[in-house]
Simulated scan of single mutants.
Amino acid sequence: MSSAAEPLLYQDSEVQISRTRFVFKNKTVLIRDLTAATTIKHKPSPSDWIFLAVGCIYILAMDATTIKMLGIILISYFVWSVAKPIYSIVVDFDSLTRSIFASRDRKRVSQIVETVQKAISQNN
């Protein structure tokens, strides 16, 4: 995206948003094709819950210190995944809803969604 021809409303290392384009990870979506943008907060995945269960079993049922440490690591991973969930940006096209970008940075995702919504409103 040429910044001289098109002023940017938002820019970071992976995302650029102008009044007409939303560029992320070398993909471009035209703002005129979008009807809405929202954020979804992901819940822990089934594998996260398995890590928690296995970690608890290791801590409670095993005697070896190494196994208990592995249990602590697995439980710590679960706690981290709950404390820092993944947020996705979901956009609506005329007849399609698609998750197009994800990050653990809630503030960044919120800024991107707000900027996309602003660009959509400027194009309508």
Rank of each mutant, 00 (worst) to 15 (best):
D48W: 07
P44D: 07
T66Q: 04
I40H: 01
K84R: 13
A102Y: 09
K118C: 02
A61T: 06
A37H: 06
I75P: 01
W49Q: 10
E6W: 08
K43Q: 11
P85I: 04
L70G: 02
M1T: 10
S95Q: 15
K43G: 11
I59C: 02
S47M: 13
T38N: 02
E14C: 05
D12L: 06
A102R: 11
S81Y: 00
P44H: 10
T28S: 03
S13A: 12
I73A: 15
R108C: 02
L70T: 03
L60S: 09
I75M: 07
P46I: 11
A4I: 15
L60Y: 08
P46C: 05
T28P: 00
R32F: 05
I89W: 00
A53S: 11
R106G: 00
I86T: 14
F78Q: 03
V79R: 07
W49C: 11
V91H: 03
P46W: 13
I86K: 13
E14L: 04
L9Y: 03
H42S: 15
V15M: 00
S45V: 13
T39H: 08
D63G: 08
Y77E: 02
N123D: 09
K43W: 08
K43A: 14
L52R: 04
F24Y: 14
I72S: 10
Q117C: 08
V79T: 09
N124H: 13
D33Y: 04
K118Y: 07
V113F: 08
I31L: 07
F24M: 08
F78E: 02
S18L: 03
V113M: 06
T35R: 13
D105W: 04
V23P: 00
I100Y: 08
T65F: 10
L70V: 05
Q111N: 04
S45G: 06
F24N: 06
D48P: 01
V82S: 05
M69A: 15
S110R: 04
Q11E: 05
L34Y: 07
K107E: 12
T97C: 04
I17A: 01
D48S: 15
I67S: 00
W80V: 10
V90Q: 12
V23G: 01
M1H: 04
L74M: 14
Y10N: 03
S99P: 05
F101E: 03
R98G: 00
Y77V: 12
T39I: 15
A83C: 13
S2G: 15
D94K: 15
P85N: 06
A102K: 12
S47W: 09
I120D: 04
D105K: 11
S13E: 10
K107L: 07
Y58W: 02
T39Y: 07
D105E: 08
T115F: 03
I17S: 02
T28Y: 00
S103C: 07
D48L: 09
T66N: 01
I112G: 02
I17K: 01
M69D: 06
